[in-house]
Every structure is written in C-alpha cells, then in structure tokens.
Write a protein that binds this DNA or RNA. Sequence first.
DNA 1: GATGGTTTAGACCGTCTGGTCTAATTGGAC
DNA 2: GTCCAATTAGACCAGACGGTCTAAACCATC
Lengths: 208, 208
Amino acid sequence: MRKNFDYHALLGEKNPLLQFPKLKEAAIDEFSRKSFAEASLNEILKTAGMSKGSLYHHFGDKFGLYLAMLDLIVEKKLSYFYPLLQDGLDTSDFFDLLQKTMKATMDFMVADPRMHHLSNRLLEESVEFRNRLLSFYTPDYFQTFAAYVRQAVESGQIDSRYPPEFVAQVVEIMLSSVHKLVRTGEPEELLETAAQVVDFIKYGISRR
Amino acid sequence: MRKNFDYHALLGEKNPLLQFPKLKEAAIDEFSRKSFAEASLNEILKTAGMSKGSLYHHFGDKFGLYLAMLDLIVEKKLSYFYPLLQDGLDTSDFFDLLQKTMKATMDFMVADPRMHHLSNRLLEESVEFRNRLLSFYTPDYFQTFAAYVRQAVESGQIDSRYPPEFVAQVVEIMLSSVHKLVRTGEPEELLETAAQVVDFIKYGISRR
DNA sequence: GATGGTTTAGACCGTCTGGTCTAATTGGAC
DNA sequence: GTCCAATTAGACCAGACGGTCTAAACCATC
C-alpha cells in the first residue's frame, strides 16, 4: 500500500492506462496467465518497454496497475451488457434474459479470452485482495442473477422445488464456464451454444 | 528437473510422504492455497519442521514433493469411488451413476476441502506442468464421464439434441463446482444437494 | 534562452525464492 | 566398538521479486 497515492484517480475516463496501450496489453497478458502475486511486474515492463520510474509515477504500485487494468476490463464487459438493458429488455421473461446474458458473456469471452480468464482468475484470489478491489466500487456495481432468480421463482417460471440460491449458483457456474463449452468461437456457434446451454438449464439433458 | 532422481519411486506404497505426516499436511495446506509456482517450499519446510537436506534427499525437488502429494490425493479420491464400482453398479443407468458419482465427489470434498481445491487448482496450472504430471500415470487412469455419456445418448437416456461432448463438459463442470453448492457439509445436506444437482442436470429448472 | 514542474530511466535495496553442497549425525550390521 | 551408508542440518548461492530514489530528460510557459 503506497502512501500519498490516490488509487481512485486511476479509474474512469482519466485511467492513465489509456495512454499506454502497450502497457495495457502487457498487463492483461501477464495477469491473465498468472495470479496477482505470481505475475511479474518486471516482465510486464520489459514487454511494454516502459521504465519502472514511469510505472510507479503513474500507478503507484503493482496493485495500482492491476486496478487500472481491471477497471478497463470491467468497463469493456459492461459494454456487452448495456445494449441488452437498452433494447427494452423484458426482465420478466427469465429465460430470455438468461439467453441474452449467456450470449453476451460468450461474445465477451470470444472477443478477448484473456479478459474472460482474468475475470475467472480473480475469483480465485484471496478474499482480502478481492475486498480491496471491491472497495473501489459501489456495492451494487456487480449485480448477480440472484434477484432475477427470486423473481422468476415467484412468477412460477422456475420450479419451486429448488432453493433460489441454488439456482443462482448454478447459473453463475454456467456463466463462468462458457469458455469450456465454446469451441471455435464462430458467431453461429455462439448462438447455437448459448441456446443449447439455456435449453439445458431450462429442461435438463434427459430425453423428452 | 533434477538429475539422477527417479520420480517414479515416489508413487504408490513406497511414497516417502507416508513417513512424514507433518510434511504431507504442510504440503497439502500450502499447495491448496497457492499455485505450484506461488507456493513456498521454505514455508512448507518450516511448518513441517523438516530440513531442506531431508526434503531434497527424499523428493528430489519441489516437483517431486508435489508429485508425491498428488499421488496420495489421487489415491484418496479413488477410494471414494471404488465402493461404487464394487457394489454391482449398473453402469447402464446413467443418472443413477451420475448421482452416486456426485455424492462421492461431495463426500470427498467435505472430508477435506483442501484436496478438492487442490484438484481444481491443478486444472488452472500450465499445460506443460499438467502434462508433466500426467506422464507419470497411464493415459486411462483418469477416465472421464465421456464414455458413459455417449453410451447414455445411444441408449436414449440423454436427449440426442445435445452433442455428447457438450453433455460431458456440462457434467464435469458441475462435478468440479460442488464446493459452490454445498453449504454446511452435513451428511443429510450432501444427500439432498446431490439429488438436487442430478435432478437439475436431468430436468432443468423450469417449472414442471 | 531561462525557469520549473512533470515524466522517465535505471541503478540500487532488502527480501525471498528453489536449489546445492558439505559436514555432522544417525543407526543398523558385524 | 567399528564401519559405512543413509539421513539430516543448515549455510550458502545465484537469480528474481516489488519497491525506492536520484538524476537526467522533457516540455510548456514566459
């Protein structure tokens, strides 16, 4: 934790990473392959052709670089979901919402698998590390499916024999595992697989 | 890679780790919390109260220790599945097999969550590392569900609209995610959750 | 051109890493 | 007790790590 450095200045439009494209790429590359502790700052700097002085001047420390990078990724990921919310989405049709979310998640994953990997890798970091990152965002910034699931149970779309938390977990497991289900990444495959996954979540695999 | 050291001697009944219970515990602890590269050998040694000389004498290097530990874990995990195979299991009933596998996986996870974590963490290691480990086992040692799935598709238990590989992947995703679905770990909860998961995989979550 | 803040370069620091090596200790065979 | 191999202890090594710091370079303003 560096003194006299305001990490908040790294977020949003003034994110200094926007001015260092090579650093951004090098960071995403390294942090998607290794955990935060395992990733080598020296390696990132070498790849990006940046000096240590510059990095510490702009980002404070290793954590600052990670935070700045994550902010860009989060923004990128959200950009895949904004269209959904604008297109007059009917959030009362749970499975339609699920299918669109699944497709958006796959699009994001295919567009840059490194970012998808990085998101999943973050979930494996220590609680302290994740909490420290979360402290820079408002609590409801990352809303999960839990709310919609509860709604869908009440409206009778989801069978009430399952506890809502169970369903929410299952949905999140499938969303974070899309990379294991997509093969080529071609647009038509994504559409088909997204439909298939939702179909599976909806009706299961037994013969019908 | 250490010269003149036979890693194969670490496996099976003569696994030297069996003679160093504290080392075994320390290793499982560290390797379940950190990746192979991230884990600290010095920390393990300190915790186990063992000297560096001893470790390198018995295990060759860090990799040897990991291999020996993994061998014990694999054996432990298999011990949860042997009973299934012996009890005159009807492998033609896919969903019965699935439920028993699910329950065994949960039992294993609850008995020692560190081992379950470690198995999952291994899947995140580099391909080289995993291949190096796999080279010490016969190819069919870790059989997946793929064969049974294909069988179940042919016998009409699984809907043929899904590609068998898709179903196999989905099953493996759920099996590796049991820790996200089990809460207390009490025996009755495990039974219920195992049934619930299989029910979900079979029929989905839609109202019926 | 002079001034002064911003940015960059990279030598350097203490710490930790996995691994090596040698000397001391242990323990069974005779 | 003697011998010798197996085992243990831990000092030591080179290299990598994140981070600090100072001096140079840059650049806008006048």
